[in-house]
Design a binder for these strands. Structure first.
Ligand SMILES: [Mg+2]
Length: 350
DNA sequence: GCGACAG
DNA sequence: ATCTTGTCGC
């Protein structure tokens, strides 16, 4: 049992209501579950107090650690389901948002590589793609995948699929806290095992600057690895006035030919990303800067990586991670045996 | 009750 | 993200 509602559609509602805004009439969007609670529920909810700090010990210390899915080391209690719009605490999200704001300073929005200036990307030989696939009834396990494709041939040169223990729930605006740790690990493994195959740019399944705080998973991964990164989203994240409204649908209809684009301009007037008609799909991609690639280069590169709607590096990472899970579920359960076996069951009877 | 909902 | 077969269309 969890404070703030029994899972499902209750929970904390729209977590992006946490953003600091003075707009009148927005206050009712603020999550209420903990707003009037007697006190903070955990370190994160105290506003990011470092763990182990000499703050007065909470009588609920050990327990509340279990209740903060965005806390490092969080382990979801068995059977606790986290669905849309639930699963994280305002305080945990607040500190995660602070971390995004802090790391955002490291983002480079311009081209930094020579090949990026070339008309046909001469000098570009390897493009990476990353993705995670999940198991339906399992909130803790996922398969993280990193692939590297040749360019311009788009043949798979490298594949790394690995089962991982997911610890953070999915909350829109905080995707990186769920996925990025495993993507960084995959990049580090590649660096270690096959340094020659390290990609010159990484296509990331999700947004970059097109984000509530201008720091989506593509920026996050880019800053943590210092690899050039591009955000590629399949759906529009409605931020800064952008909406999936009739105007937007009309703009989509205006994309007549493959390669056509229109800018995604926020209320501030800045271009946060670009909608791109890839191949012959009527459903566009949403491209944004991750790190060390300008938006124009990002769009051009994604377009040149598309055999189908989804650019091939991401598509291969997606296909292969899902296939990895499928195969694993069909294969017999293996338990690494170590030393003499002991009774595992019926211990409670002793 | 309504809005938002990257993956 | 995932649950899911066939079906209609190019
Ligand atoms: Mg994905």
């Amino acid at each position: 049992m969890r404070p703030g509602g029994g899972g499902g559609s209750g929970g904390h509602g729209n977590h992006e209501g946490l953003r600091a805004r003075g707009a009148p009439g927005r206050d009712r969007l603020r999550p209420r579950a903990w707003a009037g609670a007697a006190g903070p529920c955990c370190a994160a909810c105290r506003g990011g107090t470092p763990r182990g700090s000499p703050s007065p010990p909470s009588p609920r210390g050990p327990l509340v650690r279990l209740l903060c899915p965005l806390e490092p080391g969080f382990v979801r209690p068995v059977g606790l389901r986290v669905g849309r719009g639930s699963g994280a605490h305002p305080g945990a999200l607040r500190s995660s948002g602070s971390e995004q704001a802090r790391l955002k300073g490291g983002v480079v929005r311009e081209d930094t590589e020579e090949w990026q200036k070339e008309p046909s990307f001469a000098g570009l030989e390897r493009v990476g793609g990353v993705d995670l696939s999940y198991i339906k009834g399992d909130d803790s396990r996922a398969c993280a995948s990193l692939v590297v494709l040749s360019y311009p041939g788009l043949e798979v040169l490298y594949e790394d699929c690995r089962m991982v223990a997911v610890s953070a729930p999915y909350v829109a605006g905080f995707l990186a806290f769920r996925e990025v740790p495993f993507l960084v690990e995959a990049v580090q493994r590649l660096q270690q095992e096959e340094p020659r195959l390290k990609p010159q740019v990484l296509l990331v399944d999700g947004n970059g600057l097109l984000h509530h705080r201008g720091f989506g998973v593509a920026c996050h991964l880019g800053v943590l690895t210092d690899l050039p990164c591009i955000g590629v989203a399949k759906n529009l994240l409605q931020v800064d006035g952008l909406a999936r409204d009739e105007l937007h649908r009309e703009q989509i209809r205006s994309l007549q030919r493959e390669g056509d684009t229109f800018p995604l301009t926020g209320t501030s007037g800045s271009v946060l990303g670009m909608a791109l008609r890839s191949c012959n799909s009527s459903k566009p991609l949403y491209i944004s800067v991750g790190h060390r690639v300008c938006l124009e280069t990002a769009v051009r590169l994604v377009q040149s990586c598309c055999r189908y709607r989804i650019p091939e590096p991401i598509r291969q990472a997606d296909i292969r991670s899902r296939e990895y899970i499928r195969k694993q579920m069909c294969s017999p359960v293996k338990v690494p045996s170590s030393g003499p076996e002991r009774e595992e069951k019926a211990e409670v009877d002793d």
